[in-house]
Design a protein around this nucleic acid. Sequence first.
DNA 1: GTGAAAGCGCTAACAT
DNA 2: ATGTTAGCGCTTTCAC
Lengths: 331, 331
Amino acid sequence: MTIYDIAKTCGVSIATVSRVLNGSAKVRAATRDKVLAAMEEQKYTPNPFARGLGLDSMKTVGILCTDISDAFFAKAVSLVEPNLRSRGFDVILGCTGNDPADKKKYLHLFLERHVDAIILIGSSFGEIFDHSHMVPATGKVPIFIINCNVKFPNVYCVVCDEAGGFCETAQLLAKGGYKHILYLYDRLTYSGKQKLKGLHEGLKKSKLEANPQLEIMVERTMSDAKNVVDKLLAEKKPFDAIIASEDILAIGAQKALVAAGLSMPVIGCNNSILASCSTPALTSLDNRLEALCPATVNVLLQVLEGKGKMTPSVTTFEPYLCYRDSFKKTE
Amino acid sequence: MTIYDIAKTCGVSIATVSRVLNGSAKVRAATRDKVLAAMEEQKYTPNPFARGLGLDSMKTVGILCTDISDAFFAKAVSLVEPNLRSRGFDVILGCTGNDPADKKKYLHLFLERHVDAIILIGSSFGEIFDHSHMVPATGKVPIFIINCNVKFPNVYCVVCDEAGGFCETAQLLAKGGYKHILYLYDRLTYSGKQKLKGLHEGLKKSKLEANPQLEIMVERTMSDAKNVVDKLLAEKKPFDAIIASEDILAIGAQKALVAAGLSMPVIGCNNSILASCSTPALTSLDNRLEALCPATVNVLLQVLEGKGKMTPSVTTFEPYLCYRDSFKKTE
DNA sequence: GTGAAAGCGCTAACAT
DNA sequence: ATGTTAGCGCTTTCAC
């Protein structure tokens, strides 16, 4: 079933069929209806490969994340995919893992496939751009990064001001009288650095000094966070509140506190579904995926429409603290 | 940069270039090396649309789930995508939501795109097949369903024996002296029915009667499960153990118990990351995604290699109970 | 408003 | 072992 079949049954040329297919105005109404009817009846659908060959596009965008089983990335994809779909784009997904070489490999796979655009979710993709010569393909296809800020031609960033969020959070704790904040984090990606920077700023503004002994890098697992806090507790290291760069770490910390029969403010980040599952429910800094994702799609559409020069290269949103039981709002 | 350019710089025909591209044996080593070198130097990559047009395939499989932000589906995708990728397939993802009409729409979008195969994750996709005339396209492209069992030409199912798992779980509780099991579930999909059936079997084998008053349908949210259990507790409904069809419901139930200062066995299902985040950590029936997903990919590859007649239409795995704090193993 | 024909870049059958 | 050529199904320019 091709454009030729339709043309034949309608007694018109394939050019005409192609025109109605593409909604071209230059077709007499009667002709159009006839063609449309034939398509309907024969259940014709255009061959996407043929169209792709001619137009050099199949209207697809590639989405990359390190691990879709991570709640944060999964949520982002769940916000982006239906949105793009409703705009007529297909989404091809890649889970790269953490190896930079693999990230680049996926990027090139997407480019070889002639996707229309690429979305990178998570600031760990910043490392791809660390050495510009490693990204030869940049420029061909616009790239959109969610939650990372890099300056590069034809890449657009949509980020949350996590530095600001962590700064305010630290001040909030300081104001509540907590002077020894334990900070747990997993990686110093762009986002990771922002958080740490914000934390330090907040402490400074509160006339507190950052204590390197209380800034601890752990694996991105609940169990490792718990073990670390268990140990700190056993060593009687003095801290009176906990902030974590990820909910999953905060939950591990929380578990250690519960096991020790202790209670102190614990604040996570991402405001993922994990936060509400924790007991006590976790207060968490919400980095606004619900805003970042639609914004990313909007930016993407603008760029593809050729309005790249009118499009901001960085779009920033403000986070907010979602209060739950692990740190209650004070007036 | 096309096959023609390479041919020209090498002084050979495009057929020869195509042959080395496809690893055909009938090329002299010297020629092949020359061509390969030219490709390397000019950074040539074949146009996937042109190839797709000729072969009617771009080596893509479509994956559908209702909601990728759900931990279960996300985990499944994270297990399937890298596997398919390593076999040279691209994955296009669709999040359908729960409306059957949307599910069908996505299915047709994939078919129009000429994917090589389709994977449906989750038993709620069984409903698509309820009325055969709704699936006109079936037969064209093989369909693989994870965790659902439907009989249909050219669809292959990979399932976990959840009925068996729930049966044994119920017996286990009965043996432990728990006679009034509260069962929380969200939907009666294929999987949902299996679970309920297994529960009833387990009760019967333990000489216990199923109590419809203790089989309660709730929304698939932690908060709804918690509210329901809160209410049951307030009404002093007698139950001494809880099983839930999903971890997230078990966690809600658990929260209600904790809030009431009570403790009793709670068993979830899926053994998702949520289970370990809960406090107390949730004992959960693991439905073996780590086995189902690779198995699905294997079945898919077999079918695409034309060995469909040698491929089982249903592949079944056994679940196992992952013990944590909410129900301890008894000897 | 409609048609004829070239072209998109590849694969594969056929010829040499 | 290598070259020639006819598709694959669409879009688009150029005539009419």
